[in-house]
Nucleic acid binder design. Structure first.
Lengths: 216, 216
DNA sequence: AGCGCCATCCGGGACGCCCCCCATTTGCGC
DNA sequence: GCGCAAATGGGGGGCGTCCCGGATGGCGCT
């Protein structure tokens, strides 16, 4: 019988221990690796003894979302499941765009996690019920006022900031151009990075270019 | 009679004083503004009382090359003349790609600077004799071994570093992946930024994407 | 043999980025 | 009115970026 070989990525050892306990209880699931940050996850996940990567979103060195992008783009066939803290639905859309096949909350029942792993391995997407509702709400919302861009959790002000950051302006310059305090610009930048699950300005630039907000 | 209205951008007041002295001696040239850094240059140069911007390459906040890119892309009709320290021909090609109409050395005779201003305003390119020689040498060089990329002053090692930087790796991560000291990676990055006349990693990302070194 | 270029490494310092806490004001929807 | 999101700001702190001035060894060219 073929087992699904799983890599767990979370910066809290306790969480990894808990997840491992849940998964090892199932005969068809086996945890073959544990890592504590996103960079390690990419490194380890590229080796072909891993079938499924279970990634926490917030990790040091590299977020789970970025690790997901790296892994799915660099290794065909690897499945990725994103773990989100609490019941925050914020990163759902970004996670799906990162190539994740599934998205579950840490707070879900153990049953759901196991089911998510199996669904993901069958190639089916798995979303926790709240995520499905969020997707539907988003769909309706978007259909109602049909002018909004396809996906972009950013506010108009934040988009403005992103553009300037991607044009290589420093915080001080942006504050000067928009007549704001540097603190406010920093605040916006922090919020933007959190929303998109990114680490720094460099990732933001590529995002801005992909979205056509600025020229390369 | 219509005078050419000139903005001088250099971080050394002494140099600006000298340039102003040279230019004010000509009846058809008038210095209408002096600024001390690249960001100021962009801000001031966008106002339409400036016909020609004379930009030093190395300036605080924003290099002359980046200011040139900003200005030429955001204000049609503005001419740009790049001033280079010493007889360093390094930035010549990058300057031409930045939309500069002319490129002169600080050490050239005053006569040349005035001629460069006039040629630039007539829409003709102006290069100091050494630059012409450099261009020819480059042309011959490229024609001989026709496979080299069109322009890229970077060494293979530097290109490797640029790719990793553009993939949002930190210095520490790059050092780890290439098995180098962080200091070495920093040194490479500094050299790269200097060669390309850029300020920070954000500009590097856009450069890397334009050159096709990484995907957006 | 000397010169220039490349690649590697070091220490130190200024500054910007990024994060955490906190707070206020404004406007929108229920 | 009350909650909520968006936008605005402050204080403080860790760490990464970026630059400065060095140094070494290898390699090719003259």
């Amino acid at each position: 019988m073929t087992q699904t070989r799983i890599m767990l990525a979370d910066d809290h050892a306790v969480v990894r221990r808990g997840l491992r306990l849940v998964l090892e209880g199932e005969p068809d699931l086996r945890v073959v690796a544990e890592v504590g940050d996103g960079a390690e996850a990419v490194e380890r996940g590229l080796r072909d003894d891993v079938d499924l990567a279970v990634l926490d979103i917030s990790m040091p060195r590299m977020t789970g979302l970025q690790a997901a992008r790296e892994l799915t783009s660099r290794r065909e066939g690897l499945r990725v499941l994103i773990l989100s803290m609490h019941d925050n639905e914020q990163y759902l859309f970004e996670a799906l765009r990162s190539g994740a096949s599934g998205y579950v909350l840490k707070s879900v029942a153990d049953r759901d996690l196991v089911e998510a792993c199996r669904a993901t391995m069958r190639g089916e997407p798995f979303l926790y019920p709240g995520a499905v509702r969020a997707l539907m709400r988003d769909f309706v919302e978007r259909a109602r006022r049909g002018d909004t861009p396809p996906d972009d959790p950013l506010t108009p002000r934040e988009v403005e900031i992103v553009k300037l950051i991607a044009e290589a302006r420093t915080t001080r310059e942006i504050a000067g151009e928009l007549v704001l305090s540097e603190k406010t610009v920093e605040r916006h930048r922090t919020n933007i990075l959190a929303k998109l699950g990114m680490r720094d300005r460099v990732e933001l630039v590529r995002y801005a270019i992909r979205r056509g907000l600025v020229e390369p």
